[in-house]
Design a protein around this nucleic acid. Sequence first.
DNA 1: CGAGCGACAGGGAGCGGTAACATCAACACC
DNA 2: GGTGTTGATGTTACCGCTCCCTGTCGCTCG
Lengths: 328, 328
Amino acid sequence: MARAAGVSHQTVSRVINGKPHVRPETRALVLATIEELGFTPNRAAQALAGGPVRAVTVLTAVTAAHGYAAALRGIEEAARTARFTVGISVLEPDAADSPQDVIERLSAGRAAIVIAFEAAGARALDALPPDFPVVGLVERPATGQVPNGRPQVWIDDREAASRATRHLLGLGHQTVHFLSIPSSTQVLSQRTQGWQDALVAAGREVPARHAGGWTPRSGYLAARELVADRGVTAILAGNDDLAIGVLRAAREAGRDVPGDLSVIGFDDAPQSAYLNPALTSVRMDFEGLGRASFGLLHNLLDPNAAPPPATWDEPELILRESSGPAPR
Amino acid sequence: MARAAGVSHQTVSRVINGKPHVRPETRALVLATIEELGFTPNRAAQALAGGPVRAVTVLTAVTAAHGYAAALRGIEEAARTARFTVGISVLEPDAADSPQDVIERLSAGRAAIVIAFEAAGARALDALPPDFPVVGLVERPATGQVPNGRPQVWIDDREAASRATRHLLGLGHQTVHFLSIPSSTQVLSQRTQGWQDALVAAGREVPARHAGGWTPRSGYLAARELVADRGVTAILAGNDDLAIGVLRAAREAGRDVPGDLSVIGFDDAPQSAYLNPALTSVRMDFEGLGRASFGLLHNLLDPNAAPPPATWDEPELILRESSGPAPR
DNA sequence: CGAGCGACAGGGAGCGGTAACATCAACACC
DNA sequence: GGTGTTGATGTTACCGCTCCCTGTCGCTCG
C-alpha cells in the first residue's frame, strides 16, 4: 500500500479523488509514491465502498450489424473519456429475461445501456427494475406512445425511411418494396412504418413486406423472389448488409442496377460507397447516438460531474449509384 | 440480505458458490429466498473478498475490421458461458502505454485479453507486468523468436498468405502484388512475410508492397495506382475491407475482375460472398481463436474449473469469382 | 459408553477503499 | 490571552462478500 509513503490511507484516497484539504507538498509526495510503486486503485474496493459508479455495461443482441457496432463504438469512446469502464454482454434471442438474469450480466457498478432496436434488447430493457440506472437506445416510440419513463434516445428512422421512399417515388417508381430487418416488440419496425407512411401518403398500394435478418445472406435469400419479378423496380433494404444481398440477387437475376432496379440501404456502412454499384444509403449517426446515450447515463449517475449530453446528426440520404429513375 | 432467510451469511455464501456442507433442505430454502428477494450477489464485494476472478477485459485498437469483431465475439461468447463479465477498452494508436495506464482500463477482476495484431495492441501487451493474468492474440511469432513467456494464440496467417499467393501463381500470374494492413511492431506483418515467402520460393521478383489501413476507403486509395498499371494482374489484399476498395478501384479503372485482374482478400467477412464479383478470400477462424484465448485465460485463472481450451480452424482459401487465370 | 469424526452451521477477520467524525495545529478575533 | 475557525490529517466504521476457525450435532467404533 501507498501508506508506506508515510501518510494515512485516507490521505491517499483524497489525492486519488482529487479532493481538497491536502497540502500541495503532501499531494505531490503521494503522487510520486503512487507513480513509483505503480499503484492502481482497486476498482472493486472503490465500488464496494460506495465510490462513484464508473462502469457501464452495454447489453445488445446484435454485434455484427454496422449500426450496432457504431453505437457500441460511440458508447465506448464517450465512456473512456469519462474514465468509465465498459462491459459488454450479448443477449441471446431466447434467453430467460428475469431481472436477475439481466442484472447478473452486469459488471460491478450496475449501470447499463441497452441497445433495444429489436426484441431481445427491448425485453431486457423491460426486465430491469424501474429505478435502475439504465438508458435505452430504442426505435422511435410510436406516436402517442409514452416512453416508459426511462431515459432513452433514438434516431427518427421512421422519417428517414419515409424520405428514402419518397425519393424513390419521386424518381418515377410506381411503388417501393421493402425488405425489413427484425424489429423490437412492435409488430412493425419504425423503418417499415416510415416506408408505409410515404406510400400511403402518395396514394400507392403497399406491397407485401419481406422479412430479412441481419446478414447479407438473409438479404440475398429474401430478395431472390423479389428481383425475379420485373415489375419490382425499387427496393428499400432495412440495412446495408441486406442491401448487399439484394444487389447480388439482382445481378444474378440479370437485373441492371440502377438501370431497371433501384436499391437503397440503411446505415451507410463504410463499405457501401465502394460497392459495385456504390450503394445509395441513409446515413444514420449511431455513433453519435451511442455517445449521447452514455452522456445521459453519466448524467443520471452523477448530475454534477457530467457534461451536457451530446446530440447526434439527423439521418441523411446519401445518393450513389444504386438508385435512379424508374425504367420507362 | 438473504440472512433474513434465517441462516447466516456464511451459509448463503456456500450456497451461492455451490460449496458442500449444506443440507439439501437448507440449500433449497436459501435458493428459494434468493429467488423471492431477487437477490444478486455483489460482484465488487466478491472480487474484493478474493473470490474467484470472473471478469475479463478485452483490449483492442481496432473494432470495425471483421477479424477483430469476430475475435471479440468469440471471447464474449466463451466468457458468457463461463459466467464471466467481459469489458472492452479500445486503445488509441498514440496512447501513453505505462502499465498503469493500461491497468487502469481494466474492470475489477484484473484479467485481460489483448488483441495485439497491430502496434498499439502489441505495446499494451508488453506494458503489462509479466505476472499479470493476460493472454494475447498475436501475429504468428517470427520463426525462432520466443514468445515472451506469456500465453498467446495465433493463426498461421503467414502460411495462409503463402497459400493464397501460390494459388495465384499457379493460375499463371507472373507475380502478385500485396496491399497490406497495418502490422504489429514487427516491420512486416506475417501476411506480408507469407506473401514474400511464396514469391521468393517461386523465384519471382517481389514487387514493392503497398500499405493500406483498415477501411475500404484506404484500400481504394492505395489500389488506384496499382490498378492503373495493366501489368498488375493479381492483387492480394490484407483483408476483405481493403479488397472491396480494390475491387472498386479496378472497376473505375476499367479493369475486368477476374478477366484481367484477380483479387483475393483475407478474413472472409460475411458480405464477401455477395459482392460483385464475389470475393475470393482466405477464411480465418478468428471467432474460434477468440474462444480459445478465453479458454487459456480461464485456465490461467482457475486451473481446476476451466474446461480444456478450444481449438480453432486452419485458414482456408475460399475460391469465388474474383480470382481466375492470368490474362494471356 | 465415551472418544473420535464427519457433516453442518455460525462467528469473526479482513479484502481495499470511502464517508463521517475526531484531532490538532495555526491563526484570527474580541 | 481565551476561544472560535479553518485547513490538514488521522481514526473508525462500514460496504458485502469469502476464508479460516470454532462449535454442535448425530453416529460409528473400539
